[in-house]
């Protein structure tokens, strides 16, 4: 009987003890002003997240969306645009835009993007209208901000990515994953493409400078793996005159540059060859080739201090790091974020 008792004790122990309990952590107290760090998460795994960096306390709180709303934002947290009191979080792989209150971080609404559209970026173009680029449908959706409904779609180039506005025009970078080399120009009033501008291969990132001109970063095309003679193509920065919709200056770049941010004055930054490079937005010339060296995934710039927020995705499967450098390239501090951090959206007190 002893053996049977041992057996029953073992079974009972397993059933009662069960398994180690799931970990958890308490809900945070929302703080409106600060930097919202977007963590893409791994494609297909729905582990994107949003971190909040308290600029005063120099503290970071990860997974704020899950902690407040009890669910994950979705697959690839691609971008976030603050319009009024709301934040529009574009969740690329989940084909949706989550709208949260910036005061409470609570989810206000979910805007469903067309199935398979893979939305990338949202840009308000008027008080009642915003555009959303759709990576896989070669189109830009028109969003009615009053009803939060998508009302129409504008055909653009292949795999449209970032966009920026100037006057009543929006300039859309069509990356084509290296197979496109154009910028589509959309008239905001008619929602029509009025021009397509040629740039270098793989235009991915854009911004509008203080002069109202458009800066477009082209990564260039990567070499084809099955053709050893193919060296790919050069990228570059293209300066487009928004009024004439023509390229008025350019800077050819090797090393497949990526990302493009603007300090709001006269300096732009991008990543190339494991370094942060700065350039003059006035002359489109390199200022410092290696301002900060390191294998960063992406970067943002604080609109007031000019500090560089550099994102290290480490091995792309573990939590990444936010590394803050001064505008002069001096390291200040480092914070753990979510998986594949890539952008900081700043909401500063007035």
């Amino acid at each position: 009987m002893l053996k049977q008792k041992i057996f029953y004790i073992l079974i009972t122990a397993i059933l009662i003890y069960g398994c180690k309990k799931d970990p958890n952590s308490p809900e945070p107290t929302p703080t409106q002003y600060g930097a919202y760090v977007l963590n893409e998460g791994n494609f297909g795994q729905s582990n994107g997240s949003i971190s909040f960096f308290n600029l005063e306390k120099k503290e970071i709180e990860n997974h704020i969306f899950e902690k407040v709303n009890g669910e994950n934002p979705g697959d690839v947290v691609q971008s976030m645009t603050i319009i009024g009191d709301n934040g529009y979080i574009v969740v690329n792989g989940s084909d949706k835009i989550e709208v949260i209150s910036m005061k409470t971080w609570k989810k206000v609404k979910t805007i469903n993007s067309p199935a398979g559209s893979s939305p990338r970026h949202l840009l308000p173009v008027s008080e009642t209208k915003a555009y959303i680029t759709n990576l896989y449908t070669a189109s830009v959706s028109v969003l009615n901000l009053e009803t939060d409904e998508i009302t129409s779609s504008i055909n653009v180039g292949l795999n449209p990515d970032e966009m920026t506005s100037s006057g009543n025009k929006v300039f859309v970078a069509n990356n084509g994953f290296g197979n496109d080399h154009t910028v589509s120009v959309i008239d905001i009033t008619t929602d029509q493409v009025i021009k397509t501008i040629d740039v270098a291969d793989n235009p991915t990132a854009t911004f509008t400078d203080n002069n109202g001109d458009i800066h477009v970063l082209c990564t260039g095309r990567y070499p084809a793996w099955d053709n050893p003679d193919d060296t790919g193509s050069k990228g570059g920065i293209y300066l487009i005159d928004a009024s004439t919709e023509t390229v008025k200056d350019s800077l050819s770049l090797t090393g497949f540059p990526t990302r493009l941010v603007y300090d709001g004055e006269t300096t732009g930054y991008f990543l190339r060859c494991s370094a942060v490079t700065s350039y003059s937005t006035e002359t489109v010339d390199i200022i410092t080739d290696t301002l900060v060296s390191g294998n960063f995934y992406s970067l943002s710039v604080h609109p007031e201090s000019g500090d560089l927020y550099l994102f290290d995705a480490l091995d792309y499967s573990q939590n990444g790091l936010l590394k803050i450098y001064s505008a002069e390239g001096i390291f200040q501090d480092s914070y753990e974020t979510g998986i594949i951090p890539h952008k900081a959206i700043f909401l500063l007190s007035e």
Partner: peptide
């Protein structure tokens, strides 16, 4: 689900 052992990625 990650090497970070983040309690939110489980």
């Amino acid at each position: 689900t990650t090497y970070s052992n983040d309690p939110y990625d489980i």
